[in-house]
C-alpha cells in the first residue's frame, strides 16, 4: 500500500512537471491517465519497493556520483581498446552475489551493464553471469559489489575506506 502511494505521487509529479499546462480540462486528462496507469500497474502486480524513492535515502545520490565516475573511467578504457582491438581478452565471470533484497541485485546488474566493459548476461536468484571485455574490466566488479552492499546499508565499510583514502 505504501509503495502504491509513492508510485501515485511520483506519477503525479512527473505528469505535472512534463505537462506545463494547468487548465482544468488538461488536468482532468492527467488525472484520467494517472488512474489508468495505476490500475494497469496494480493489475500487473509489479508494485514493489523500487517505487519508494526514499528506500536508500542519502546513499543513493552518492552511489550515483560514484557510478558516474566509474562510467567515465570505463568509457575511456573501452574507447582505448576500440583502437587496439587485438588487446581485448573477452572472458566470462561467474559471480556469486547475495544482497538483502532483489532490488540490490537489480541495481548491481544494471550498474554493471551501464559501465562499458562489463555486461550482465544472466541474473539468477543465486548469482550472475557477466561478460567482461578484459581483465581490468572484470576486476572492477568486486568494488561494485561492495558499493551495492554499502547502498543497502549493510556496512559502513566503504565510507570508512573513503575517509582513509582522503587522509592519505
Amino acid at each position: 500500500m505504501r509503495d502504491t502511494i509513492f508510485l501515485i505521487v511520483l506519477l503525479a509529479l512527473l505528469w505535472l512537471a512534463i505537462s506545463g499546462i494547468y487548465k482544468p480540462a488538461i488536468l482532468l486528462l492527467g488525472l484520467a491517465s494517472l488512474v489508468l496507469v495505476t490500475w494497469v500497474v496494480i493489475r500487473m502486480k509489479i508494485i514493489g519497493e523500487e517505487h519508494n524513492p526514499t528506500v536508500f535515502a542519502w546513499r543513493l545520490p552518492r552511489f550515483w556520483l560514484w557510478a558516474l565516475r566509474e562510467i567515465v573511467i570505463s568509457n575511456i578504457h573501452v574507447a582505448r581498446l576500440v583502437f587496439r582491438p587485438e588487446q581485448i581478452s573477452p572472458r566470462i565471470v561467474y559471480q556469486n552475489v547475495h544482497f538483502q533484497r532483489p532490488l540490490g541485485k537489480v541495481i548491481y546488474g544494471n550498474t554493471c551493464t551501464l559501465t562499458p566493459g562489463t555486461v550482465t548476461v544472466q541474473l539468477t536468484k543465486s548469482g550472475t553471469v557477466i561478460h567482461a571485455l578484459d581483465a581490468k574490466s572484470a576486476d572492477s566488479l568486486a568494488e561494485l559489489e561492495r558499493r551495492v552492499h554499502w547502498l543497502e546499508g549493510e556496512t559502513d565499510e566503504v565510507a570508512a575506506k573513503d575517509a582513509g583514502e582522503e587522509r592519505r
Partner: peptide, 23 residues
Amino acid sequence: GIGLLRFPDFYSRMHAAGLTETL
C-alpha cells in the same frame, strides 16, 4: 560506432554499443 564495426564477436560489440549509450 567504430568499435561496433571492429570488435570480433557479438558479445564484445555490446560493450562498444554501451560506449555510445552511456558517456
